[in-house]
Design a protein around this nucleic acid. Structure first.
Length: 608
DNA sequence: GTAGGGTTAG
């Protein structure tokens, strides 16, 4: 057009600048900017707004590469390479007039670059200039209050939206869903979603992510199915949002189905999705598949490294976990807060206390990460498991913040494993001081008293619980057979195939007794005779699930069971022998790790 | 000419 000698007018540049944004070509954009100035069109409002938008977008690109330098208001202190990007405030200052769009563009630019206070300042300035926030403004501001976890301010915006009839706006809808979800107000998220007159893929993604992030996994999965029924196409974000639900519920068949979708949709090179797949396979007991995905990836970021390290840690592969951590550092990927939790978990499941101490010290010294509650908890857990109970006690007492009930609880369960009632009493006192309703502590103390035949004190604990009206969650195991999940609680006879299960349990008992199995009744704390105890052990939830798995799958199939609390010692012994007599691999995930039983031995080498 | 959603955590 220009070669024909035709001059562009003010209507043209917004489109040309937009093309530069799509092409991610800053140099081209800058030369167009030059062209605009030469033609004297930089005083045009629409052209100015398009320039603002372009520079703001390139600012995001630059910042996503690492440094979070404020390019909007800092000029002097900026590194040379970023100086060109300072053009947003310059363009803004030069503009002869500004409208709502100018402000919205700058507000969004600041908000997307993490400069929340500057964004909010611009909102006030906009008000001072007699311009009212519109739906664009609100959907840029809401994510700020989501990030701040400030539900009061978020609600204020929601109210403003309702008063100005913006609440049926799809964009504001997703921001509201996300804001409420971030503030743990999942009911409010659902309420907003249900009231939306129109929903696009992002509204669906927002509500699904909201459910999963708040632990409402069944609802998340239900909404995912509804999304498919509504013929809304799932996107990359959908998969990385829903996958953690499969990981948490150990629904391997669903995870695999989603993996199929992901491959067919061509999403398998997405970093977020790959990390969520690694986590899902690891948590569903298939660490080999998790590792395969990790090894297939072209680039690894900190999250994917952390996910695979945690995966190996949970499966008791401390050596793999730690050598991966070394490799990660060698690759120049910086570990974060979560990565160290994974490292401590690895050390914990292998009893590597010395190594853990070295990591703990290097975490703050070499990586500048201040140990948080989770790190202290992991270290305390590790020391406790290794039997270093007093060291753990000292460690917890020396924390630079007040210990929580949960951190003392890790030590209490270590006292149970190592049968130290004296320290347990001391620890329990600390727990009841900060958390008088801690169910686990009452149950553990009651069991420990019972184990030392101090029935009166055991009963006292139970009575305390009753008085306070707190109940422990029943022990529960589940297993997936033919794409459906079967749940068992201890002593449960309600399964339709119970007769077969009972017969199988009896047969298995006979077979393992021939292998030398002697019931270990030490951990059963009912004041009843030995024969009855044997029966109680016999009907533990993991045994029921296992017996059901054996009779309902073909010979040789790997059996995967999930349990909500720690596997009991007797069941651990029994399952080892069962894996030998039925010649099957049995994988049990309890609340802290995986046990791979095969040929009479367990991967945890009886340390868990 | 301007806006919203994602992965790892005893």
């Amino acid at each position: 057009m220009r070669s024909f000698g035709i001059y562009p007018d003010h209507t043209m540049f917004p489109f040309v600048l937009k093309a530069c944004v799509f092409l991610k070509n800053l140099r081209l954009g800058e030369s167009i900017h030059g062209c605009i100035i030469r033609l004297g069109l930089d005083f045009d409002l629409f052209t100015g707004n398009a320039l603002l938008n372009m520079y703001a977008k390139f600012q995001s690109l630059q910042l996503n590469g690492g440094c979070k330098v404020s390019a909007f208001n800092v000029f002097d202190g900026m590194p040379k390479s970023v100086i060109r990007l300072d053009s947003v405030p310059k363009v803004l200052e030069m503009m002869p007039e500004r409208d709502v769009v100018s402000y919205n563009t700058v507000i969004a630019g600041n908000a997307q670059n993490g400069m929340y206070e500057e964004a909010l300042r611009m909102v006030r300035e906009m008000g001072n200039a007699n311009m009212k926030p519109d739906s664009f403004t609100l959907s840029s501001v809401l994510p700020i209050f989501a990030e701040y976890v400030d539900v009061m301010k978020g609600k204020e915006i929601h109210g403003y939206a309702i008063r100005h009839l913006f609440d049926s706006d799809c964009y504001i809808g997703s921001s509201l869903i996300d804001m409420y979800a971030n503030c743990a107000r999942i009911e409010d998220s659902c309420h907003v979603f249900n009231l939306l007159p129109t929903r696009d893929d992002i509204s669906w993604n927002s509500i699904i992510a909201a459910c999963v992030q708040n632990g409402v996994f069944d609802e998340g999965l239900k909404l995912f199915r509804l999304m498919l029924t509504a013929r809304v196409k799932p996107r990359d974000v959908t998969f990385s949002s829903i996958m953690p639900a499969c990981a948490y519920l150990t629904t391997l068949h669903l995870g695999k189905q989603l993996h199929g979708y992901i491959i067919r949709g061509g999403f398998d090179d997405n970093l977020f999705i790959a990390s969520s797949l690694i986590d899902m396979y690891a948590k569903c007991g298939n660490i080999r598949a998790a590792r395969w995905i990790f090894d297939q990836m072209e680039h690894h970021d900190m999250v994917s490294w952390t996910a695979i390290i945690m995966g190996h840690a949970l499966h008791g592969h401390a050596h793999d976990a730690l050598s991966l951590f070394k490799q990660m550092e060698k690759d120049g990927v910086k570990p974060n807060y979560v990565s160290f939790i994974a490292v401590f978990t690895a050390c914990s499941h292998a009893g590597l206390t010395d190594k853990a101490w070295r990591f703990f010290n290097s975490m703050s010294q070499n990586h500048g990460i201040k140990p948080g509650l989770e790190h202290y908890a992991a270290m305390a857990d590790l020391l406790g498991r290794a039997g270093k109970l007093n060291e753990a006690y000292e460690f917890i007492s020396s924390m630079h913040f007040a210990p929580s009930g949960s951190i003392w609880s890790t030590l209490l369960s270590a006292c149970r494993v190592h049968k130290n009632l004296e320290l347990a009493e001391k620890v329990a006192k600390e727990i009841f001081k900060v958390d008088p309703e801690n169910v686990g502590a009452y149950v553990l103390m009651s069991n420990m008293y019972a184990a030392s035949r101090r029935w009166k004190e055991a009963a006292k604990m139970r009575i305390f619980m009753k008085k306070k009206g707190i109940r422990k969650e029943p022990a529960c195991s589940w297993i997936e057979v033919k794409n459906s999940v079967h749940t068992f609680i201890s002593g449960d006879k309600s399964h339709p195939l119970y007769d077969g299960i009972f017969q199988a349990l009896k047969d298995l008992l006979e077979q393992i007794e021939r292998e030398g199995y002697i019931p270990d009744t030490n951990e059963d704390f009912h004041d009843v005779d030995e024969e009855q105890k044997k029966y109680l052990l016999f009907s533990h939830s993991e045994r029921l699930a296992l017996a059901f798995g054996i009779i309902s799958t073909p010979a040789g199939t790997t059996i995967r069971i999930t349990k909500n609390i720690r596997v009991c010692v007797d069941c651990h012994t029994a399952i080892k022998l069962i894996s030998k007599v039925v010649q099957r691999e049995i994988i049990v995930r309890d609340n802290s790790r995986f046990h791979h039983f095969k040929d009479g031995v367990c991967s945890c080498r009886d340390y868990w």
